[in-house]
Structures are given as C-alpha cells and as structure tokens.
C-alpha cells in the first residue's frame, strides 16, 4: 500500500505522539550526563536532581529576600500584561477589521494603511515606547498591542471581505441595514476566525512580552530568565521556558475549545 494511505491505529497514534517528546527528554538526559561526567560543576545542562532543586526554589518556597513565590508572582505579572495586550488588540482588530472589510470607503482609506502598519517591526518601536510611555506596564502592553493588532486586523478584514457577496445581498433582501448586516450576519461569522487568529498570535505575543520584560521590568517570566542568565542558572531558565511553553499550549487549547463550544457550526462548516 502507498504510504499516503497507511494510517496508524489508535495505540500507535499515541505512541507516535509521545515519541518526539521522549526523544527530546532522552537527548537532554544523555547530554547532561555526559557533561556532568566530564565536569561535575558544569552549569549548562543540569541533572534532573538539580533541575528539581531549582524548581523547588522558585515555585515551592518563598524567595528568602523578598518573601515572594517567584514563579507564581512572575506568572501573574506576565499573564496580566499578556491578557491586557491581547484583549486590547482583539477589540481593535474586531472593530477596525469589520469596518475595513465591510465599508468600501474605509477600505479605500485605511486598508493600505493597516497593511503598512503591520509591516513596521514592533521591536524597533520598543525604544520609542519606553521613551514616551516610561518603563511601566503601559509600554509593555502597548508593545504587544502594536505587535499583534495590525496582523489580526488585516486577517479579519480579509475574512470579512471573503464572505460571499450573495450572503450580504441576501441579508439586504431580508431588510437588513449596514449595522444589522454587521451585527447579525458578519460578526457571528468572523468571531470564530477572530479566536483562531488570536490563537495564532499567542506566539508573537509571548515574544513581545518577553522582549519587553527582558529590557525593563521588576517581575515577569521574561524578566526572571534574563536576570538569572547572569549566573548561568540553567536550573531556573529551563523550568521557566517549559512553563512558558506550557502556558501558551494551554491557552491555545482553551481558546479552540471555547470556539467550538460557542460556535458549534464553525466545526460543521470545516467538515463540509
């Protein structure tokens, strides 16, 4: 049989799913063992016991100097920034994207402008943000918004524009005004796409968050990584990276669950 027609069975599928993860862990353990064997004081690839000690120090006991539980206070600070940034970006994308996608006048004036804005490299704007907005939360949240809002807006405007003209005309023959078409025909059809777009922007949002925190912050996941980098504290950096990845994966799954729960028809359409 051709390889394109061979499918794994359920058990084999689980095995194949776990395989790359197991390979990654094995590669780390082997590398770590080889390095520690050559030099027991090596800090680059700490052993599982050293990693566990690091995790205990940051997650399971308060910091002796500040009395804070570092991992949790860092997570709270970062997630607040991330939620604020993504929330603002989503609202902007929804309003602007629908308006640009639906109204020819706005498309004529703003369409190219949004495309232009989405090409500005956000990290190059970071110094400007720190200078104008100061070193507080506003600059970090603003960086996330600037980084993801233009792309989400463009994506949504394209999606609105892709809605078949027939459907819009049909709504007109059902006596809908521009406002009602936006509210009852276009909005519900693009909301699932907005959630998917949000999922795809989680990665960039984390990138901008960590970049901003690395430069100036007093708490946050990115801040901690770049702080302990000075001491080569890989036993903290590795768990933090894993934790950030886990948070992103969970957010991704949660948003997709939300989409198929709230918009059950969007799964049906995909299958059709």
């Amino acid at each position: 049989m051709r390889w394109i027609n061979r499918r794994p069975r359920r058990g084999a599928e689980m095995l194949l799913l776990c395989l790359p993860f197991a390979a990654l862990v094995a590669a780390y353990l082997i590398g770590s063992a080889i390095r520690l064997d050559a030099n027991p004081a090596d800090k680059l690839l700490p052993s599982p016991a050293q990693l566990w000690a690091g995790i205990q120090r940051i997650a399971l006991m308060p910091d002796p100097r500040t009395g804070e539980w570092l991992l949790w206070s860092d997570t709270a600070a970062s997630l607040m920034r991330l939620a604020a940034g993504l929330g603002i970006a989503t609202v902007i994308a929804l309003l602007l994207g629908m308006a640009v996608g639906l109204l020819p006048y706005l498309r004529a004036s703003l369409g190219a402008f949004v495309a232009f804005l989405s090409m500005v490299p956000p990290l190059a704007l970071l110094p400007i943000l720190f200078i104008t907005l100061g070193l507080g939360e506003a600059a970090k949240i603003c960086l996330i918004v600037i980084g993801v809002a233009p792309i989400m807006t463009r994506d949504l405007a394209l999606r609105v524009h892709e809605i078949p003209r027939e459907m819009i005309v049909k709504a007109e023959t059902l006596s809908a005004s521009t406002w009602l078409i936006a509210l009852r025909v276009v909005l519900p059809q693009v909301l699932p796409r907005l959630l998917t777009s949000l999922r795809l922007q989680l990665g960039p949002a984390f990138l901008f968050l960590i970049a901003a925190e690395a430069i100036s912050a007093d708490a946050g996941l990115g801040y901690r990584i770049f702080l302990v980098r000075r001491y080569l504290a890989m036993d903290v950096i590795f768990p933090y990276v894993a934790w950030i990845t886990l948070l992103a994966v969970l957010a991704d799954i949660a948003i997709d669950r939300l989409r198929s729960r709230v918009f059950p028809w969007s799964d049906l359409e995909r299958g059709a």
Partner: peptide, 20 residues
C-alpha cells in the same frame, strides 16, 4: 438602487447563513 425586502432572492449557493 440597492436590494430591498420587496425583492427576495435564492441563489444556487450561499443563500442561507451557516451560523444560524
């Protein structure tokens, strides 16, 4: 100059709303 409720339409495709 634009469609209105006095003229109904049925197309070959895209005549109904997938989200309703």
């Amino acid at each position: 100059p634009e469609p209105g409720p006095d003229r109904g339409v049925v197309y070959q495709r895209y005549s109904v709303f997938p989200h309703l």
